[in-house]
Amino acid sequence: MNGFRTLFYKETLRFWKVGFQTVAAPVLTAMLYLLIFAHVLEGRVQVYEAVSYTGFLVPGLVMMSVLQNAFANSSSSLIQSKVTGNIIFVLLPPLSYREFFAAYVLASVVRGLVVGAGVLVVTLWFVRLPWASPLWILAFAVLGGAILGALGVIAGIWSEKFDQLSAFQNFLIMPLTFLSGVFYSIHSLPQFWQEVSHYNPVFYLIDGFRYGFLGVSDVPPLRSLAVAATCLAVLSAFTLWMLKRGYKLRH
């Protein structure tokens, strides 16, 4: 095993060992959203023709789970390692900063995909989705997981205490994911908020992901893909720069 593969394996093993907390719990949360929102809004909200509200909601919920769990994986692992001090076990070996980055981000993607798949499987009881183009589904799930995984690395390294990390989560990640059109189409918003939504990268992730299931979307999927790829490139470059400097990891 080389260093990168071991670190990647460790990061996946870490969440898998507490799967009840890291996989089952978020699947349950998504189910609760589905039960409540579908119950209240089914039949009252119609976003796209020939798509029920539940059919519209499910892909959004799946993607939201992917994103939140990808973020949670890298950020919570790093903050725990820093607070307990066991981060030195990965700082002492001859791992390059690129390997370090890749391992944490990939493990985040895996956690996001596992939870997303879990949510999807459970929701199959509630709705039939057209599965218009699975490749788009996969592309957006992986890109979204990687973007939030990288954000998680940044947040985990920047935070020195757990409450700083939860501030990051509550004031950045939650608003971005909730205001991205998971529960509604942004076309139902007033003009101003529609325009604001177009500056939210998570909107493109949800919209593109939904396109993969439904074959319809608010913006063309290629544009969403371009936005997502650009985001990932910028965030990765920034994270790598932080890691290379040893920011808050190597004094």
């Binding site: 260093g3 670190l7 070996p93």
Partner: peptide, 13 residues
């Protein structure tokens, strides 16, 4: 596991 992981970080088979 702790020791096996540590060996892995150093690329040891």
């Amino acid at each position: 596991e702790t020791l096996a992981l540590q060996a892995g970080y150093f690329g040891i088979r």
